[in-house]
Amino acid sequence: MLTKYQDFNTLGISLARIDFAPYGGLNPPHTHPRATEILVVLEGTLYVGFVTSNPNRLITKFLNAGDVFVFPIGLIHFQFNIGQTNAVAISGLSSQNPGVITIANAVFGSNPPINPDVLTKAFQVDKNVVNYLQRQFWVNNH
């Protein structure tokens, strides 16, 4: 995935072009704490979705060229290329400073790391799984 951002200082909006690799190109689960996002697919086919809060309900859609989808402010969302060709989308955000929190990076790659006992209990998995995931996201692992 390749993303190019453009903010429009003092206008309260941002735009991004997102290029997705063929089948499997992913904009992983993330959130924008200060902006609603609108996505317009220019090429390809994307599987997109977000999770509502209280109750945690997954809303998904398959999008083709010309389709539009809105991700409400602060909700965890993703985009995934399910097509055999590249996909391209334009993302508009309702803030010049929308912020972005990538969920896996934040949880497993924080510096210093979150205590594995906390994550073991939160995710109800063995401590070895947590330790493995934290190793995948260490700070210089690009």
Rank of each mutant, 00 (worst) to 15 (best):
T3H: 02
T3G: 08
Y5Q: 07
Q6P: 00
F8R: 03
T10G: 09
T10N: 14
G12T: 00
G12C: 00
S14R: 04
L15K: 14
A16W: 11
R17L: 11
D19W: 09
F20G: 08
F20H: 13
A21N: 14
A21M: 12
A21F: 08
P22I: 02
P22R: 01
G24H: 13
G24C: 12
G24I: 02
G25V: 07
G25A: 05
P28F: 02
H30L: 09
P33S: 07
R34L: 04
R34Q: 12
A35R: 10
A35K: 10
A35E: 07
A35Q: 11
T36D: 01
E37N: 03
L42D: 15
L42I: 14
L42Y: 14
L42R: 15
E43Q: 14
G44E: 11
G44Q: 07
T45R: 07
T45S: 07
Y47E: 12
Y47C: 00
V48R: 03
G49K: 03
F50L: 11
F50Q: 08
T52V: 00
S53E: 08
S53W: 02
L58W: 09
I59C: 01
T60I: 12
K61G: 02
A65K: 15
D67W: 05
V68I: 10
F69E: 05
V70G: 05
I73G: 06
L75Y: 14
L75P: 14
F80D: 04
G83A: 15
G83C: 13
Q84I: 04
Q84C: 00
T85F: 09
N86R: 13
A87C: 08
S91W: 00
G92D: 07
S94T: 15
S95H: 08
Q96I: 04
T102L: 06
T102H: 11
A104C: 06
A104R: 06
N105W: 07
A106Q: 14
V107F: 03
P112C: 00
P113N: 04
P113C: 04
P113G: 05
P113A: 05
P116R: 08
P116L: 02
V118Y: 12
T120E: 11
D126L: 09
V130H: 04
V139G: 03
N140Y: 10
N140D: 14
